[in-house]
Computed example of a mutant assay.
Amino acid sequence: MNQRTGTSILDRSGVVLVDKPSGPTSHDMVAKLRRIMGTRRVGHSGTLDPMATGLLVVGVERGTKFLAHVVAHDKRYEATVRLGAATHTDDAEGEVLSTAAPADLEALTEERIHAAFDAQRGDIMQRPTSVSSIKIDGKRAHELVREGQEVVLPERPVTIFSLEVLDVVFGVDATSCIDVRISVHCSSGTYIRAIARDVGEALGVGGHLTQLRRTSVGPFDISEARTLEQLEKAPQLSLNLDEAMVRCFDVREVSESEGVDLSLGKWLQPVGHKGVHAAVTPSGRAIALVEEKGKRAASVFVARPAGMD
């Protein structure tokens, strides 16, 4: 029991959906939420760049451990790609590496632009941006870039479920640059900046992001998110742990006695379920995430350990 708030850890465990503004890092957002929520146990699932805005999924108390099991969800973004210049970060905050000749940009047609984005759809191999959070020998790639090292990450498979070109604007900012507004539905691990870079390279003019907004992460949508200002006025979870587990995973209904067994770290008999399921009692309590292997349905995460109030 927390003496200051009069609530238990489980009462304060769950997920907060935050609408991140442009500017702060995801780490900055976690620091602010630790103060707002009154606990050090706060962590996010899926980094957003400082320039980016939109949905940041944050775990509180035991919600941080829960989010470790919710890492492979699909995501949706809205973005603006500027054709006509390449930067070392593949976004507007980076140093400009090259600019296209006005004649090359003027030669581009909407048909060619659409075709270049069409080539990004489906199962593709993508080279992550060099200023990513991917670790190389224990250091994040963006840290190595800041130290002046050249970083070229290997390609890896990602899936672009859909990519729609919403608008094409020629001659922006009194230049020959072209802004292309897109919406993207993709697998986890996809870099929208890399799409901007690769489309720019394919068209021979360079490209980078000028705007990026994440609108969904798996079952979580930006429409449910609140700003920091709103959370300052009313600090509360978006979903408690029971609600979050049921939303993210299929349910296996268990008896109250089976729930007690899971809370004690015991395993259950398998019932033929594939993948990870949320074990939920008749009282609506999500006790654990369980996965069947052989003759056992064992916990991969116990939300409500025995003895925890």
Rank of each mutant, 00 (worst) to 15 (best):
E150Y: 02
V58Y: 11
R34N: 09
D74P: 08
P50V: 08
Y77W: 08
K139E: 10
D49H: 06
T80P: 09
M37L: 11
L67R: 00
T39Y: 10
V152W: 01
V81T: 11
I113M: 02
G148H: 06
R35H: 12
V30M: 11
K32A: 15
G59V: 04
A52P: 04
T129Q: 09
V60Y: 07
P157I: 05
G122E: 04
L67S: 02
L83Y: 05
T39I: 13
D49P: 07
A92S: 15
E93S: 07
P157R: 13
E93P: 00
S45G: 15
V30L: 08
E106T: 05
A103I: 09
V71P: 06
A141V: 12
E78T: 15
G84Q: 06
G43W: 03
A107I: 11
T129S: 15
A72Y: 05
A72L: 08
L144V: 07
K135N: 05
E110Q: 02
I124R: 07
L48H: 09
L108R: 03
S45I: 12
V57Y: 01
D74T: 07
E61S: 10
I134L: 14
T87R: 01
V81K: 00
R127Q: 15
F66L: 15
L55D: 02
R112H: 02
D91N: 07
Q149L: 13
T39C: 08
Y77N: 08
